[in-house]
Design a protein around this nucleic acid. Structure first.
Length: 259
DNA sequence: ATGGTAGACCTTCTA
C-alpha cells in the first residue's frame, strides 16, 4: 500500500504535472492540499481515468483538500471536528477499503504568519484540535496515517538555515511543541523511520532562487500509527518534481506499507 | 540589500 501526500498549489494550474507524477509513482492513496477550487471545479475525470476514487473538500481561491484512492473511500469526514465556526477546508478523513483497511487523514495545517496575530492563534488552536482528533483515531487501534502539509519545520535539520526562519510561524517553539505533542501520542514520522536524509526538504519557495540554492524546508509529513508503522517498508521524497516545468512549490512524499 | 514569485482574481490576499 503506497500512500502519498502532496500540496499541489492549485490542482487545475498543475494538473499535467500531477497526472504525470500519479502515472509514474502509481500511489494507491494520495492526499492533496491547496486545491484552490470548489468541489465542482475539481478535475474528477482525469483522475478517475487513472483508476482513482475521489473525495473532495474544496474551497474557492484558498485551501481545499482531497483524498484519491484506488480502493473505495468510506466513512468520509470533511472538516476537522471540534469547531463548527471553522469554515476553512483543511481536513478530510476516510477509511480506505482495501483488503486490509487503512484510515487516512489528509490535512492542510494553517500557515500562521505573521506570528502574534489572529492567524498564529488559529494555527495553534487548529493544532490542538488536530491532536484531539488524533487521540480519538488512535483509540481505534487501526492502521492510520495523518498526512499533509503541516506547515511545521520540526527540527533545525529540517531547514536549510534555521536562523532565517526564526521569526516564522513554521518554526516557532509553540508550533514545534504542538507537533511534538501530536507525535508523542504514538506516531512515527515515516521519513525519519525510513532513515531519510535530514535535509529531505519538501518545499522550496518560488522566490529568491530558493530551489537552485536548495533553500528548502521539510514541512510535509507522514505520521503513522503504531499499527501502520509496524508495516512501514520505505518512505521517500520526490525531490526531482520541483525541478520540472511550472512546478508546485511542494513535492510529493510517499510511504509504502506492507500489504 | 527587508528583496523575490506564483495562483486566484477585482486589485489584493495568501503563501
Amino acid at each position: 500500500m503506497k500512500i502519498a501526500t502532496w500540496n499541489v498549489n492549485s490542482i487545475n494550474a498543475h494538473l499535467p504535472q500531477a497526472l504525470a507524477w500519479f502515472s509514474q509513482a502509481a500511489p494507491d492513496v494520495v492526499a492533496l492540499q491547496e486545491l484552490k477550487c470548489v468541489d465542482e471545479k475539481f478535475p474528477y475525470a482525469a483522475f478517475e481515468s487513472l483508476g482513482y476514487n475521489i473525495s473532495v473538500f474544496g474551497q474557492k481561491t484558498y485551501n481545499g483538500v482531497a483524498l484519491l484512492s484506488k480502493y473505495p473511500l468510506e466513512d468520509v469526514v470533511r472538516g476537522l471536528p471540534g469547531d463548527d465556526d471553522d469554515l476553512q477546508a483543511r481536513f478530510i478523513e476516510a477509511l480506505v477499503a482495501a483488503p486490509r483497511p487503512f484510515r487516512v487523514a489528509g490535512l492542510y495545517l494553517p500557515n500562521g504568519n505573521p506570528i502574534g496575530g489572529d492567524k498564529f492563534t488559529y494555527k495553534l488552536s487548529w493544532m490542538d484540535r488536530l491532536t484531539l482528533r488524533a487521540k480519538a483515531l488512535l483509540a481505534l487501534e487501526e492502521p492510520l496515517v495523518l498526512i499533509g502539509d503541516y506547515n511545521v519545520i520540526p527540527e533545525a535539520q529540517d531547514c536549510y538555515d534555521p536562523a532565517a526562519w526564526s521569526g516564522d510561524a513554521l518554526f516557532q517553539p509553540e508550533s514545534r511543541a504542538r507537533f511534538r505533542a501530536l507525535k508523542w501520542l504514538g506516531f512515527t514520522d515515516a521519513l525519519e523511520a525510513a532513515g531519510a536524509d535530514p535535509h529531505a526538504y519538501t518545499f522550496w519557495d518560488y522566490q529568491a532562487g530558493a530551489w537552485p540554492r536548495d533553500h528548502g524546508i521539510r514541512i510535509d509529513h507522514i505520521l503513522a500509527s503504531p499499527q501502520a508503522a509496524d508495516r512501514l517498508v520505505s518512505a521517500q521524497v520526490f525531490r526531482e518534481v520541483r525541478g520540472l516545468e511550472k512546478p508546485s512549490d511542494h513535492v510529493p512524499v510517499m510511504a509504502e506499507f506492507a500489504d
